[in-house]
Simulated assay, not measured.
Amino acid sequence: MEGRLNPWLQIWIQPREVINQQLERENREKYFILMVMVYGTLSVFTGYEQNDMDVNIGRIILISIVAGVLLGPLIFYFTSWLTAVVGRWIGGRGEPGDLRVATVRGAYIPGLAIIAVNLIQLAVEGKIYFVSSYAQFEAMQLGLIEGTSEYPLISILTYIAVVWTFVINVNAVGAAHGFSAWKALLLVVIIGFIIAIPLVLVTMLLVSFGLI
């Protein structure tokens, strides 16, 4: 009988096996809401970007907590439901609960690697981490700063973390639906179009009315 795999460690190298085991667990979604809120807060915090040099860390932390706690669970349940529904269009068998397991175990936990690299970058750069590249370039042109914040090693680590997290996520979704990682990749592309098309249409409509 296959031994119990550690979902925090072995998800990195055995994503399908870990997800298959987690799907069979009783009370498999225990602590999920808390994990989603924490992950959402950290994601918003490390992904925050502004177009001016006046950085208020307290305000960024507050925005991150509110967004992570309120929007995190909503996005989590919606995307899990959508991935389950669209997956069944192409032969999958996963239910929303199965995709919630795949999302937390196969996307959020590996995603902590990206957050960790971003936090290292924040520790190195300081407040300028939250300033967009465009704003940094303008400030450099005005002589307010000596140069933009670019660290090749951190960029490489971020790239590796993003790519590997995506690979794990695709395999996790495939395991939850009972099909291959390639089919799961197709599913991700379809969902991308489903989400992107309405956003593009709304943007075009707002532009046509001169609202943006």
Results as ranks from 00 to 15, higher is better:
residue 7 P to A: 10
residue 8 W to K: 03
residue 11 I to P: 02
residue 14 Q to E: 06
residue 17 E to C: 07
residue 18 V to N: 05
residue 23 L to P: 05
residue 24 E to D: 14
residue 26 E to T: 07
residue 28 R to S: 13
residue 28 R to A: 14
residue 29 E to T: 14
residue 31 Y to R: 05
residue 31 Y to M: 14
residue 37 M to F: 10
residue 38 V to E: 03
residue 41 T to S: 14
residue 44 V to F: 11
residue 45 F to M: 04
residue 48 Y to M: 14
residue 49 E to I: 09
residue 49 E to T: 15
residue 50 Q to S: 07
residue 53 M to I: 11
residue 54 D to L: 15
residue 56 N to Y: 09
residue 56 N to R: 12
residue 60 I to P: 10
residue 60 I to D: 03
residue 63 I to W: 11
residue 63 I to Y: 14
residue 65 I to S: 02
residue 68 G to N: 00
residue 71 L to R: 01
residue 75 I to G: 12
residue 81 W to C: 05
residue 83 T to H: 07
residue 83 T to L: 04
residue 85 V to H: 01
residue 86 V to C: 08
residue 87 G to H: 12
residue 88 R to I: 01
residue 92 G to I: 00
residue 98 D to M: 05
residue 101 V to W: 06
residue 101 V to M: 02
residue 102 A to E: 00
residue 102 A to H: 03
residue 103 T to L: 13
residue 106 G to P: 08
residue 109 I to K: 04
residue 111 G to E: 07
residue 114 I to A: 08
residue 115 I to M: 10
residue 118 N to H: 14
residue 122 L to T: 05
residue 127 K to H: 09
residue 131 V to D: 05
residue 136 Q to N: 14
residue 138 E to G: 06
residue 141 Q to F: 00
residue 142 L to S: 07
residue 143 G to K: 02
residue 144 L to V: 02
residue 147 G to N: 15
residue 149 S to D: 10
residue 149 S to W: 06
residue 151 Y to F: 04
residue 156 I to S: 08
residue 156 I to M: 13
residue 158 T to E: 14
residue 160 I to K: 06
residue 160 I to E: 07
residue 164 W to M: 07
residue 167 V to P: 05
residue 170 V to C: 02
residue 182 W to G: 15
residue 188 V to P: 05
residue 191 I to A: 02
residue 192 G to R: 13
residue 194 I to Q: 07
residue 194 I to R: 05
residue 195 I to E: 02
residue 197 I to H: 02
residue 199 L to C: 06
residue 200 V to Q: 04
residue 201 L to A: 12
residue 204 M to I: 07
residue 207 V to C: 03
